[in-house]
């Protein structure tokens, strides 16, 4: 299966080279594309100098816009499935082959899940994750242990849908939407590293509250 690894990167000068190198080493058969979302640091220069395959966005579109650009790229170049893979070194390439196998078995979306078989702890972040799992369950009747995982693989059908339509953020509410439409979502147990450089998009109390509000309202009422 022709797989495209999409790496959205915004100010990831400290890790992007290492992430791409690890993909090249672990999965020489897969292609990758880095989407440089108008980084303000030297990410763009690193990508040019090392000759890494990348798309430079002309304007900063945010994570959703960057990932969608990757999906469009994958669609244009005839890939069968695509995976979103963080540029900060949290995700590990060695789990990708297993995810591809699930797509081949017929799943529409495969999530690299931290909690498919392991338990969540009780940190604030995990309580948020629990709430989202609960809300998703209430809405769709399906259990997704790790809805906020950024490691998602899409098959061709989903790829087309995510690339071409409005309101397909790479977030849990889109998962709820796809579940309601009858998509098959599989979870694979993966390990994730603590981010080594850069800051999380969702750090800080206010943005966490905003994120939770947005997700809960969107899943319950708008999907």
């Amino acid at each position: 299966m022709k797989t495209c690894i999409i790496i959205p990167a915004y100010n990831e000068e400290g890790s992007i080279k290492r992430v791409v190198d690890s993909i090249k080493e672990e999965l020489p058969q897969c292609d990758y594309v880095v989407i440089n979302d108008c980084s303000k640091d030297s990410t763009g220069r690193i990508l040019d100098e090392c000759g890494l395959n990348h798309v430079d966005l002309l304007m900063n579109l945010g994570l959703a816009g960057a990932v969608q650009t990757g999906y469009k790229y994958a669609l244009e170049n005839g890939y069968d499935c695509a995976i979103q893979f963080d540029g900060d070194g949290q995700h590990q390439a060695r789990f990708i082959p297993e995810m591809i196998r699930e797509i081949e078995k017929g799943a529409d979306i495969v999530i690299g899940s931290r909690f498919a078989t392991k338990k969540k702890d009780f940190s604030l972040r995990m309580i948020g994750s629990r709430i989202l799992t609960l809300v998703l369950y209430l809405k769709t009747g399906k259990k997704i242990a790790d809805p906020t995982s950024g490691m998602r693989m899409l098959n061709k059908k989903m790829l087309f849908d995510y690339a071409c339509n409005m309101n397909r953020n790479p977030e849990p509410d889109t998962l709820a939407y796809q579940l309601k439409k009858g998509a098959v979502i599989k979870e694979i147990q993966v390990e994730m590293d603590e981010r080594s450089t850069g800051v999380s998009l969702y750090s800080g109390l206010m943005s966490s509250v905003k994120y939770m509000y947005r997700m809960v309202i969107s899943i319950l009422f708008l999907v």
Binding site: L57, L58, L61, G65, T69, K72, Y73
Partner: peptide, 8 residues
């Protein structure tokens, strides 16, 4: 923005 970036 996406289309132009991809085209470039």
């Amino acid at each position: 923005v996406q289309e132009i970036s991809l085209a470039e």
